[in-house]
Nucleic acid binder design. Structure first.
Lengths: 231, 231
DNA sequence: ACAAAAGTGTTGCTCATACACCCATGT
DNA sequence: ACATGGGTGTATGAGCAACACTTTTGT
C-alpha cells in the first residue's frame, strides 16, 4: 500500500446534530428548527451541519450551536453516532450526536427556532426522534453522577428551582427536604443574601455555584441521585 | 438551498480505531499491530480502518475487529471522536474510537498483532496513545457501574480471577473478602461443581455468568466499585 | 503440623429514606 | 390566624469497610 491508500474514494459526509436542552422553570425543553431546504423541507428537525475539511467535529458542533443560539462555549458532549447507510434518503450521512445544555434566559430569540417540551416533541426528520430519546437517556445517566444540570440555570437560582429541574429531567418526584440537604451537603453552592420572594411567602435564598468546587466535581463522581436507575 | 447542498465537497475521511482489551490472568493488555504501510510504516498502531460508503461506523469497527482477531460479535463501545484537522499528517481524518473487550483465550494467534501490557504500551502513531489512555479511563468509569468486565473472561472463571481482573483494570488493591461477597450478592454468578486447584491448595470454585441476569444488569446500574473515583 | 489461599461472620460507620416538625411571611 | 412553601431534626435501615476468623488441602 502506498499513499494512494488515502486517495481511494472513501470519503463520506460527516454531520453533527445537536440536541439542545433548556429549562423553562418547569419543564425540560429542546430547541428545534423548521427545515427550509429539501429534502423534508418544512418539517421540524434538530439543528445540524456538516463537518468541514478544516475543523474538528467538536468545532463544527460549536459552530452549529452558535449559529442557532448566538452563544459561545456551550456545555456539550458527544454521546452517539448514527450511521446506518440508509438513515437519510439521499446519501449515506454519518451523524455525530451532541447534547448541549444552555440557559434559556440568555438566548436571544430572533433566530428561527422554537422550544418544545421534551414530551411534546413533534415528529422529526430521519432518525432525529431517536436521537432525542437517546440524548435524554444519556443526560439522565450523566447528571446522576456529575452536577452538569447547573448549566441549565442562571448564575443565581434557588434550591426549589434546582429541585424542579431534577424532577423535570428524571420525570420523577423528589423529596424536597432530603434533596435540599444533599445539595447543601455537596459544598457546591454558595448562599447569597438575596431571596426570591416571587414563588413563596417565606422566600427562598438564591445560591450560586462555587466554580472552583464545580470544576473539580464535574470530573468526579458525585451521585446526586442514588437509587435512581436508568430506564 | 437545493439538493446540491449535498454535492458540495464536504466529504471527509472517516476512520474507526479500536482499542482491544484483553486480560492475561494477571494484567490488562491491548492488542496492537505494526503498520505495514506509509506513513509511519513499521510503527505500532491501533487497529483501524475507514468507514466505507455502505456500512455504518459500528459495522466498520466490527469488520476491523474481525479482520484482526477472527472474532464476531465482540463487545464494543464508541467512546470518543478524535478529529483535529492536523491529527494525521497527510489529510484530515476524523476517527471514531471504539473500545472492545475480548477473551484472549479464544483468539487464534496467527494474525500479525501483538499483546502489550497496558502500562508498557510502546509509542504509537499519531494520537493513538491518547486514545488508549481515554479508552482506559472510559473502561474504568463504565465498569464501575456495569458488569462488562466479564467479557474479558472465559465462560467459567473463579472469584479470585475476577478479583485480579478488577485489580488490573483499576490498578488498585481490593479487599478480596468483601469483593467476593459483593460479587456473590450480585446474583450474577452461578456456582459450578468444578474447582480450580491449580492456583491454591483449597481450590476455588468455578462460576459462570447468569446470562439472563447479565442482560438485565448490563443495562442497569450495579455499582461494583463504590468509593472508586476516576482520575 | 503447618502454610497458604478461599471464603464467612461481625462490628461500626456512613448515608439514604421517611417523615415530624419548625420557620417566615403574604393575605 | 392561618395557609403556604422553605427549610431542619431525627429515627430507621441498608450497605460498605475493616478485620478476625474458619475452612480446605498440598506439602
Amino acid at each position: 500500500m502506498t499513499l494512494d491508500f488515502y486517495k481511494k474514494n472513501k470519503k463520506i459526509l460527516l454531520a453533527v446534530d445537536c440536541i439542545i436542552f433548556g429549562f423553562n422553570k418547569e419543564e425540560l425543553e429542546i430547541l428545534l428548527i423548521q427545515r427550509d431546504f429539501e429534502p423534508e423541507k418544512g418539517k421540524w428537525s434538530l439543528m445540524g451541519g456538516f463537518v468541514e475539511e478544516n475543523e474538528s467535529p467538536g468545532d463544527a458542533a460549536q459552530r452549529v450551536l452558535k449559529s442557532l443560539t448566538g452563544l459561545d462555549h456551550i456545555y456539550m458532549e458527544q454521546f452517539a453516532v448514527f450511521g446506518n447507510p440508509n438513515r437519510e434518503p439521499m446519501e449515506h450521512v454519518v451523524s455525530l450526536c451532541y447534547f448541549a445544555l444552555i440557559n434559556t434566559e440568555i438566548l436571544s430569540t430572533d433566530y428561527k427556532a422554537r422550544w418544545f417540551k421534551l414530551d411534546k416533541c413533534p415528529p422529526l426528520i430521519f432518525d432525529h426522534n431517536e436521537m432525542v430519546h437517546e440524548a435524554h437517556n444519556k443526560l439522565k445517566k450523566k447528571a446522576a453522577l456529575y452536577p452538569i444540570l447547573f448549566e441549565l440555570l442562571s448564575d443565581k437560582f434557588t434550591i426549589p428551582q434546582i429541585t424542579l429541574l431534577y424532577e423535570a429531567v428524571y420525570q420523577n418526584q423528589l423529596d424536597k427536604r432530603n434533596f435540599t440537604r444533599k445539595l447543601l451537603g455537596s459544598k457546591l453552592l454558595i448562599k447569597l443574601d438575596e431571596k426570591d420572594k416571587e414563588n413563596s411567602k417565606k422566600g427562598a435564598y438564591y445560591y450560586k455555584v462555587d466554580k472552583s468546587v464545580y470544576k473539580e466535581k464535574i470530573i468526579t463522581f458525585l451521585n446526586f441521585l442514588p437509587g435512581w436507575y436508568e430506564e
